[in-house]
Amino acid sequence: MNGAVRTGYVLAILALLAAPIVVVAGVSLNAQQALLFPPPETSLRWYGALFTTSDWLVPLRNSLVIAAASAALAVLVALPLALHVWSRSGWLARALSTLGVAPFMLPPVISALGFLVFWVTIGMYGQMTATIVSHGVFLVTLPVVTLSLGLGAMDPALVEAARTMGATRGQVLRTVILPLLLPYIVSGYAFAFVLSLNEYIIAYMVAGFTVETLPIKIFNSLRYGYTPIMAVVAVLFVALAVAVFGLIGRFGNLPRLLGADRVEER
């Protein structure tokens, strides 16, 4: 394969992935309530409509609250878990690392049904807390993975040095380990936040009829016909994901975070 063919192949695949998003972005600019591409007249009215009609404002707020809270919960559980697995071996460490990765590896519909029967059993079915906790458990894998990578990349000599200088366990944790882990905490939170915003099946099974999130709202409205507001939401979700992952890529090492060992600086 020569250079041009290679670049061409990568660009072709990327173009295929971009095609639906480009069409949806065009559709979101329709001046009329119609999904035409290219739009005959363009306007930004549907972007305004998303933030002014309560029909869409309530799901928007639900989604943001759930994503912010469940990502925080996921990080709070992942942090002690990753620290324990990093510094110890034994059955508990192995069990914890399996438990940390499992929720995300299984088809989500299984966890969704598990959560449904769980919340029904304890009588919290349909509450927003149930959605937040379920998302927090489902997404715990993401901060677990980023934090484990961060701990693996840390120079043990730094911890050693702090200890030799007489720092207590708490001081080492607060002044050495946590500051070094901060980028990985932030990226773990960001991954979980974006995925919670987009998650449908668990949110739907746990509280779909009472706590509407944006994906649930879109799917429910699909039955009554398409409106450009759905395209607006799609565009905003893509923009947010690009912004979040772009920031991680700009300030962190995305190839390393995703498991590449050798990447040439070029």
Partner: peptide, 30 residues
């Protein structure tokens, strides 16, 4: 190179994180 890899990875992660609802809606529009 690392820069190009990062850009492609950002694009892939953005698509991967998209809700099935949004992908379904976008493709049915396309």
């Amino acid at each position: 190179g690392r820069r190009a890899q990062t850009l492609v990875l950002v694009a892939l992660l953005a698509v991967l994180s998209l809700s099935e609802v949004i992908i379904g809606f976008s493709l049915s529009t396309l």
